[in-house]
Design a protein around this nucleic acid. Structure first.
Lengths: 147, 147
DNA sequence: TTAGCTGCAAAAAGTTTGCAGTTCC
DNA sequence: GGAACTGCAAACTTTTTGCAGCTAA
């Protein structure tokens, strides 16, 4: 009886598509999988436990996973990148509070349809890989406090 | 006969909404106005002419203009921010080539409608200020060269 | 065994801060 | 005149690079 439903080894290996399945990479993928919001490099390091993996290695793993389309980079305009698993079946976007930084997932079927169409590309950009959509504003708390 | 159609002084002052209309700010706004694509801080500095305005001042001007919603920040996932004038009447998004970095404006009326609706906000995010939408892929050139 | 991965040190790139002097209104 | 703005120096944060040693396949 496995308490933490772990992805089977083969699944992890598939995500790494040819790259070596090292301890660090497996743990990092596990952390992203459990995360409820996109994480920064710093947050990944914290969750990995200090001294567990070097910062540089995390940057390198993240770059590989991004190129393999396993994770996607997200910009909350906070001055550093965030990363989340790129589940195609659970694609979503984000609200971002300009004041307090809080974020929230955001899903919209019609939007998804349009973006899928846009994914067919245009004459100048025939091959679309992914997209990013963030909505910026004030969350409920910050709206109350703000004139 | 004015060759370069300059915004009248009053219009520039309006854009600065209360902040002082210094030479640097006026020139920076002029440059953004003429730009055909979102510019980085470095590109702004180049176009301003070396030694004309200090890098730090450009950062500060950009921050003010962004807060006043005169310009908007755009992330091409190139490791640094880009900025463009925020014309509400000419709102658009961008294609970004993952390989060569080329970008292209992208407009879609239906998308605009949906995003306008999303701008009404949600219970958790009642006040929406702006949004960002970028589509990443390969441009025609890079599609040809790439397997 | 060995190609690929990692850690460490160092550097590069991007952005922010403090303060003294200057400029716009 | 005075609040707002700017330049310069310095610091800070984020990300990249080089290289020697380690590890998964």
């Amino acid at each position: 009886m496995e308490e933490h439903h772990m992805k089977p080894d083969t699944e992890i290996r598939a995500m790494l598509s040819g790259h070596k399945a090292t301890q660090g990479r497996i743990r990092l993928l596990g952390i992203l999988r459990k995360a409820s919001a996109p994480l920064t490099i710093q947050e990944l390091l914290q969750r990995l436990g200090k001294n567990a993996i070097d910062k540089v290695t995390v940057y390198r793993i993240v770059k590989i996973l991004q190129k393999e389309s396993v994770i996607r980079q997200i910009d909350f305009q906070h001055g550093h990148a965030h990363y989340e698993l790129a589940h195609p079946e659970n694609h979503h976007h984000h609200f971002v509070c300009i004041r307090c930084g809080k974020t929230k997932d955001f899903k919209n079927a019609s939007m998804e349809n349009l973006l899928t169409k846009a994914s067919k590309g245009s004459p100048d950009f025939p091959l679309v890989k992914h997209h990013s959509l963030e909505i910026f504003g004030f969350c409920r708390n910050c709206t109350k406090k703000h004139p």
